[in-house]
Amino acid sequence: MATTFEAVEVGQELPRITKEPTTQQLVKYAGASGDFYQIHYDKDFAQRSGLPGVIIHGLLKAGWLAELVTTWAGPDAFVRKIAASYRGIDVPGQPYVLTGRVTGKRAEDGRGLVDLEIWGENQDRQQTTLGSATVELPLRR
């Protein structure tokens, strides 16, 4: 179901997505992204670095936020901007929930732009990733 600019309402919530990250997923992401910093797959290295264990890549969480936005906005939307600030360390083996809401909509140069507040939270409902996005949605013809 594609979303159109006209149908969007300020305050509307985005359907949440839940991820179940595993250490295997971190290894896959390391390989696919080329980020081989050992804190994401080597527990001993991570602990020597002062971390509780291997931690989730910030950019994987940003990728999930992008998935949240594009899943909601549909395949005819163009993502203009995403910002993600990592406020806490997240570890595999726990569910991670991505969600957000519409904070504004505006027409600019004949294009419909929608602003979003987006975030990720851990199983204790702590918002460990805070973000925002702007997405260009198709206008009804």
């Binding site: 002062g50 890549h57 910030g58 163009f78 203009r80 995403i82 910002a83 990592y86």
Partner: peptide, 16 residues
Amino acid sequence: GRVTLNGGNEYEWFRP
């Protein structure tokens, strides 16, 4: 420092 953490990322896209 003994560890580098990612504090945040921001992207602005102009073309696919």
